[in-house]
Design a binder for these strands. Structure first.
Lengths: 241, 241
DNA sequence: TAGTGGTCTAGACCACGAT
DNA sequence: TCGTGGTCTAGACCACTAA
């Protein structure tokens, strides 16, 4: 990894360990540059990462401080900036399993062609999965992926972690995701598979996930039980990096 | 403004105008540096802003390209990265009005003290507003703000834009916001003020908004009609700036 | 191999806060 | 005024892609 990412991770560790306490100033860019044997520019790049994540804030003329309410971040069930799928999110804490309800190959519909930048003859996987956390229904994930980008997908991979397969076996890197949030009433499937009452609301997360090279490779619609995890994110003010 | 922000805005304009078309490469950092009479480092800082917003992606060894599906961004009703309140969001397109349902001053409860880093004797505003877009009920916003940070709040300001008051009259800058999304069933207030049926779901957005200096100044819970706007955001992969 | 973007440097100057 | 963070520079080297 690059030096500035290493330093950012080290600083984050120290913040979480309490070496740099909430409300307290960091040693100062000059000092940090000396400590890590690097330049101020590199330190600033490290700090900018932690600012974007909401750990730090800088005050010109004064210092860079650790934010007071980092507990808000820790109290999170799921961060929006996690695009790795729940398998990895829940790692250690909970047992995540998946039941594949549908796994087909077909040609894409118009919305899917639009979201994934595909032509009418570029076949896609059409996948419906029930995700369970600690054996209890958690969400229904409807996923569309182009087979040209993610070849060799199998039932076995689907019930484990698709992201692990993409990164480890295919050697692809995820570049980012575009997410939308909305609410709706329970559908037939929500009632059938999530065990919802017909009056239960559902949190809907619509995703378009991109590879590092800008290619969209996943269009998914997730129906999540409303009384389970919340999605949270820190949104830095524009241009403050 | 700084040079790198000016350049980023100029590039964004050219992308939106089609000067740099989707899928096409940008002129290259060296050329851009010459064109804008600046250094490569500064150009990279500009590009990083647009990458974080999802407009561009770079491929090492090749070039920096305009993303294909910028329409996804344009189709958005509301961006999560907008912390400016709906008054400004809907500017021009729709008429936003507010009806103040409650406006009190009291001492903060424990959750509020926690979220806003306050002591038990730091008084807060307790505000309940019904937001209407084009005369139709849109959301109910329950807002808690410390009077010490935002003094002089009035009924008149509340029915217009609080953010405008904070920035223009108080001279404060917003640094970022922490947001959580969830869904719930309609409450009594949702039925009464939003005109919901008792079976209608509600999209709930919980916010903690920070000033540039890291001070939290707003804790708000927004109940939004589920059939109205969606919230969307582009989430870049960690460390890619 | 040539040209691209990614990282890093060692300095400079400025804006701002604390004193 | 002094020290902080914010911006910017002109170059360097590396990793990678494309020809």
């Amino acid at each position: 990894m690059s030096k500035y990412i290493d330093i950012a991770n080290d600083l984050k560790k120290k913040i979480q360990a309490g070496t740099y306490a909430p409300g307290e100033p960091l040693p100062g860019q000059k000092n940090l540059a000396d400590e890590y044997k690097t330049s101020r520019m590199t330190i600033q790049k490290s700090l900018s990462l932690l600012k974007a994540e909401g750990y730090l804030y800088s005050q010109q003329g004064s210092a860079t401080y650790v934010k007071n309410n980092i507990d808000s971040l820790a109290n999170l069930d799921i961060g929006v900036d996690q695009y790795v799928g729940i398998s990895k999110l829940m790692e250690g804490k909970h047992k995540v399993t998946s039941k594949v309800l549908k796994f087909e190959i077909r040609y894409p519909e118009e919305t899917e062609r639009d979201k994934l930048s595909l032509g009418p003859t570029d076949a896609v996987y059409d996948i419906l999965r029930l995700r369970l956390v600690d054996q209890a229904p958690y969400s229904i994930e409807h996923t569309i992926m182009p087979i040209s980008i993610i070849p060799g997908l199998s039932d076995d991979i689907l019930s484990k972690s698709v992201y692990h397969y993409i990164q480890e076996s295919l050697g692809l890197e995820v570049g980012g995701a575009y997410r939308q949030f909305s609410a709706k009433k329970s559908s037939e499937d929500d009632i059938k598979f999530l065990g919802n009452e017909s009056t239960d609301p559902v949190l809907v997360i619509t995703n378009v996930v991109y590879l590092e090279n800008g290619t969209p490779f996943e269009y998914s619609i997730v129906d999540q039980k409303y009384d389970k995890g919340r999605f949270g994110i820190f949104v830095p003010s524009q241009g403050k990096f």
